[in-house]
Amino acid sequence: MASAPRPRRLPYLLVGVLLVLGCAAGGVVVATRVGHQEPVLVLARSVTVGQVLSKKDLREESLSDGSGLAFIPVSSRAQVEGRPVAYSLPAGTPLTKKLLGKAHIPSAGQAVAAVGLKAGQFPPGVQPGNRVTVVVTPTAGGDATGSTSSSSQSSAWDASVTDVRSDSTDQTTVISLQMAQEDARQLAAAPTGQISVVMVHGGGQ
Rank of each mutant, 00 (worst) to 15 (best):
L21W: 05
S151H: 01
A103D: 06
A159E: 03
G82Q: 07
S152W: 00
V17Q: 06
S166N: 10
A189V: 11
G26A: 15
Q110V: 08
G16R: 05
G26H: 11
H104Q: 08
V198Q: 10
T192V: 11
T139S: 14
I105F: 04
R83C: 02
W157E: 13
G22D: 08
Y12G: 06
V164Y: 10
Q181V: 09
F71A: 03
G146P: 03
R6D: 04
V197Q: 03
H36G: 02
L43C: 03
G16A: 10
Q194I: 12
D143A: 04
A114S: 10
D183E: 11
Q51I: 06
S154Y: 05
S160K: 03
D143Q: 07
V161Q: 01
R77E: 11
L58E: 01
P138G: 15
L69D: 08
G92N: 12
M199G: 14
A188F: 05
A86I: 05
P39S: 06
S196T: 15
Y87M: 06
P94H: 06
T172Y: 10
V164I: 13
T192P: 10
R185K: 10
V174S: 06
R8K: 10
N130G: 05
R77K: 11
F71C: 02
Q205C: 02
G125F: 04
G22T: 07
A188M: 12
Q181K: 15
D158L: 02
T137Q: 12
T145L: 02
T148K: 05
Q110W: 15
L99K: 05
G120H: 11
Y12P: 00
V15H: 00
A2V: 09
Q127S: 14
P5F: 08
T173R: 12
A188S: 15
L63N: 02
A31C: 05
I105T: 05
T162F: 01
T32C: 08
T145D: 02
G50S: 13
T139A: 15
